[in-house]
Amino acid sequence: MRLSMSVTNFSRRDERRGLGEQLAEIAEAADRGGLYGVWVSDHLLQADPYGARPGETEMLEAYTTLGYLAARTSRVRLGTLVTAVTFRPPALLIKAVTTLDVLSGGRAMFGLGVGYHAEEAAAMGLPLPPVPERFDRLEETLQIALRMWTGDTSPYRGRHYTLEAPVGSPAPVARPHPPILIGGTGEKRTLPLVARYADACNVFDIPDGGATVRHKLGMLRGLCDEIGRPYEQIEKVISTRLQPGESTPSFVTRCSTFAELGIDHATVITTGPWTGESVATLVEAADQIAELASQDK
């Protein structure tokens, strides 16, 4: 199972040192320790439910941050978990992801969803259309991304977006393109989009004995069968939290439970900002999970 660190809280832990240097330190530790990825949340106001109220603590713009982290790391994958589709016009968003991929040597991941944060949208003047329209825009953005990444410069005319010549140069380094993760588990619109367009889905660690995860993945398998796509092509990602003071053995046991549910990749958040100690716990867990996997072969 892959383990990634997800940064939702950018608050500084040490007022004597800069936010950038502190963030780089934890990303570099993840990079050295062999974690698969570093994800950041894509908001303009603090959205961590365990943090302060929106606007009261630091929040960094996602793609500028990822570019900075790309320069400070060498192997860890980088992406947003996830970008709201209405935050940026499609061509600009796809260019940002492609630029990240090119400059990082093929390490970009494309996390995308419909968005939800009405308070943030109102505070910052961001568009947040009705939910059905956001899903339409999500699908059109995915179609545009795949066109641009395959070099198709023919005009694109959708219901919400029109591009006369969607040029995607330079092409991404990742082949065939940066992996696409669609956030959310809605059964009417989200999971069908995952089945059609995504390389990864994102489910949530709900304390119900795995019932919800089993149900959602079962739905996804059925949708893949309907369109003739191998279910195994889609990476199953779960978002979970490293609890304060949680031991490495405890977390490894939890990951074993995820694997039994069919999960391939866990993205891990913390309560508050990441620390050197919490990153070390995650790295140690990744090592133990890899060792257990090698013993099973």
Rank of each mutant, 00 (worst) to 15 (best):
D48G: 10
T83V: 13
R77V: 05
L45P: 07
V40Y: 00
R75T: 06
D48N: 15
L45W: 05
L66M: 12
R53S: 14
V38I: 09
G79C: 11
A62C: 15
Y68D: 07
E61G: 10
R88F: 03
L66W: 11
A52W: 00
E58C: 08
G51T: 08
P89D: 08
Y50I: 03
L66A: 09
E61A: 13
P49K: 09
V85L: 03
L66H: 12
P54T: 14
M59W: 10
G79R: 02
L44F: 14
L60C: 14
F87W: 10
P89M: 07
T65A: 13
Y68A: 14
G51R: 07
R75C: 06
A52H: 09
R72M: 09
A47H: 08
D42Q: 04
A47V: 13
L78I: 10
A47L: 10
I94L: 15
L81I: 13
L45T: 05
V85P: 02
V38W: 00
R72H: 03
V76R: 07
R77P: 05
L44N: 04
G67W: 10
T64F: 04
Y68I: 11
T86F: 01
G67L: 14
L66S: 10
L92P: 04
T73N: 06
A52I: 05
L60Y: 06
R72S: 06
V82E: 04
A96C: 09
I94G: 04
G79K: 03
M59N: 09
S74G: 15
A84W: 00
D48E: 11
V85T: 07
L60G: 07
L78P: 02
Q46I: 13
T73P: 11
G79L: 11
R88C: 02
T80V: 12
L81F: 15
A71T: 12
A47Q: 14
A71G: 15
L35M: 12
V85F: 04
L60S: 10
E58Q: 05
L44R: 08
E56Y: 07
E58R: 10
S74L: 02
T80S: 06
S74Q: 14
V85G: 00
T83L: 00
P90Y: 04
M59I: 07
S41V: 14
T57R: 09
L45E: 02
R53D: 14
T73L: 07
D42S: 05
P90I: 01
Y63L: 12
R53K: 15
R75L: 03
L93I: 08
R77D: 09
G55L: 12
P90L: 09
T64P: 04
V38Q: 00
E61F: 12
G55V: 07
A52P: 12
V38R: 01
K95N: 14
T86D: 10
T65C: 07
P89Q: 07
L60A: 08
E61N: 12
T57L: 10
R88G: 01
V38H: 00
L69E: 05
V76T: 09
A62M: 01
L81P: 01
R88W: 03
G55K: 12
P54V: 13
Y36L: 11
T83I: 03
D42C: 09
T83W: 00
Y36N: 11
V76W: 03
V85N: 01
V38C: 08
R53A: 15
G51C: 13
L93C: 12
G37N: 08
A96H: 05
W39D: 03
S41D: 02
T65P: 03
L92W: 04
Y63A: 02
F87Y: 15
